[in-house]
Design a protein around this nucleic acid. Structure first.
Lengths: 171, 171
DNA sequence: CATGGCATGTAATTTGTTACATGATTTC
DNA sequence: GAAATCATGTAACAAATTACATGCCATG
């Protein structure tokens, strides 16, 4: 669970519920991360067991009690130790699209072009969303993430164009 | 196991052993995928159980018998069905580095710059390797993958430069 | 009155990594 | 004589997804 550290990092700022954390991740890091409840809650329980976080239950009428998690001193230490370590070189990336492109010899030219154009559509949609988010990014760090994703997407669009050319010309 | 389909795709060309498959993935797709034996062999066994592949054992002296896997008609169908489906939009990416950058407020300026420079080092090393590979790529599809990875890396280097500027100026 | 937001969670399954185990042969 | 290549695999663990389960409140 690399989500461990992300959670701890977010709790460094202020206490939050699992629900809040999820929302935060979606909006601020949605471009490059995701956290489903199925990962989030168990991780939170684990951190609790390890003493890295504490919980305060706030009863609510007609809703499950809100559980607000707060990072402990120990948790802060764990987080900072991780943060100061150099990240590993290899990104965990898995792009179904690229695998398919690599195996495109079993597709017709039309099908390959369709594959590329579907990809283009996905990227363009993502760029749209990100461009809109970019204006709303209040904090620099949030803007960094968005600009990262945008840079990657734009580079991929350029690359797609190149490959499309190559394929059209070769056929 | 998305490796399922990659394996089947490679076997479309000609029969191979697990060892061969691994080598092929490393050299041809190393930039964007990886396949450890711990994934590979179990997946191969599973495909065998499903009738998507067949195996022929070739005894060898002083080595475990080489098991050459061959795709079946059924396997071909499974593969082609998958291949023709549009890939899903979301890439599975998880970059420890980006998470750390997002949480960089808990680091000193120096530490942040170090984080960025370590990242730069990783990318530059990867670019070196890829540039060397680019010459050796015999097939177009292999060149596509390499140019993809190179494009992404170069875009990231540009982005890193921008962010470094921003941080230096802000401090 | 349906959709989405609020709010928690569990269970089953999938997917993958890492380390271990074995051991000969070829190359530097 | 050390390191890399050939060649198979298992076991323990880690990480994450998906679907399920529950249920009110506010907005359109």
């Amino acid at each position: 669970m690399s989500h461990r550290y992300l959670i701890l990092g977010l709790l460094m700022e202020h206490p939050m519920s699992g629900y809040d954390i999820r929302k935060h991740v979606q909006t601020a890091l949605g471009a490059v991360a995701n956290a489903s409840y199925g990962t989030l809650y168990p991780t939170l329980h684990k951190l609790l067991g390890e003493g890295a976080v504490e919980v305060e239950e706030i009863p609510q009428q007609s809703r499950p009690a809100k559980k607000v998690y707060q990072i402990t001193g120990e948790g802060r230490q764990v987080f900072l130790t991780w943060l100061k370590q150099s990240p590993s070189a290899d990104d965990q990336t898995r792009r179904e699209f690229l695998t398919k492109l690599y195996l495109a010899k079993y597709l017709s030219t039309d099908e390959v072009l369709r594959l590329l154009s579907v990809r283009r559509g996905h990227i363009e949609a993502a760029v749209q969303t990100l461009a809109a988010d970019q204006g709303r990014a209040a904090e620099a760090r949030q803007a960094w993430i968005i600009s990262y994703a945008l840079s990657m997407h734009k580079a991929e669009l350029d690359w797609l164009e190149q490959i499309e050319h190559q394929i059209v010309e070769a056929s």
